[in-house]
């Protein structure tokens, strides 16, 4: 397998992966959705809530707030406390606001200064004069299998397009019809400008099948990773591979036990 970076920063990455298969990438996609642990608020205790929203709605909104996840925290399922909740897998938050104001995600104060809301300006609820909100919350390190709020990002891929340009006379039509504008006419010859932008819509083939042939590769893929902010793109990928590694180790151990 060969991986080439097309573009990458902390939040978004695009790669060209050669010599792999769709099912291998799909495994990676499912691992990222289901098995990469992140912190998210799980339990909320309301001391006072005179806002317009019910306790449950606020608790739900708080749960969906992405938190900057420090990798020193351990997935609660694999923690030494066996799911009871300890300082290695949970974190306390407090929030205390008196109206009139808007309560934002940044108002959540954690006991660990490294962990805070990824996007400070996410509105939780609006408070009018005389309304107040006072809560305590516990964030838990868990994975997407447990709740979608723990999923660290989005992973999607498409087959790498291969073009076959044939002898043709009237290819102007397929240049116009391409929604990504990646085809060009040079003199009388059809040319592909940026093939990584092609999304295999086949509009050009429908328009002039005698001039162009487009096929998705079975072994080469364009992979896109988007982070929701808890972890960086690189952390998401390395963590997914690590989780996969652990699971395979577990499987190998079980197989060895069979006599």
């Amino acid at each position: 397998m060969e991986m080439k970076k097309l573009s990458m920063d902390d939040m978004k990455g695009s790669f060209l992966v050669k010599g792999t298969t769709a099912w291998y990438l799909n495994t990676l996609r499912r691992l990222i959705i289901n098995n990469v642990p992140t912190l998210a608020i799980e339990d909320v205790t309301f001391i006072e809530n005179s806002s317009a929203l019910y306790d449950e709605i606020i608790a739900h909104r708080l749960g969906l707030v992405p938190l900057v996840t420090d990798e020193t925290y351990v997935d609660q399922e694999k923690c030494k406390c066996k799911g009871a909740g300890c300082a290695h897998c949970t974190l306390q938050f407090t929030l205390n606001k008196i109206g009139p104001c808007t309560v934002y995600a940044e108002d959540l104060v954690s006991k660990d200064p490294k962990v805070k809301a990824v996007y400070p300006k996410m509105p939780i609820v609006k408070l009018l004069e005389g309304q107040s909100l006072k809560i305590e919350a516990v964030a838990v390190m868990s994975h997407g299998k447990d709740h979608i709020k723990h999923t660290p990002g989005l992973f999607y891929y498409q087959q790498y397009p291969t073009f076959k340009i044939k002898e043709h006379k009237n290819a102007k039509k397929c240049v116009d019809v391409c929604p990504k504008k990646i085809l060009e006419l040079k003199g009388n010859k059809l040319k592909v400008v940026d093939e990584t932008k092609c999304n295999l819509c086949m509009a050009c083939v429908d328009e002039c099948p005698e001039a162009i042939e487009v096929k998705g590769s079975e072994t080469d893929f364009i992979v896109n990773v988007e982070s929701w902010g808890q972890l960086t793109v690189k952390q998401i990928l390395t963590e997914a591979v690590r989780v996969f590694d652990d699971e395979l180790d577990d499987l190998a151990q079980e197989v060895n036990k069979i006599k």
Partner: peptide, 12 residues
């Protein structure tokens, strides 16, 4: 559908 956080963009 995909889970992208967008709440912080609403006010702007």
């Amino acid at each position: 559908s995909c889970g992208k956080p967008i709440a912080h963009l609403w006010e702007e």
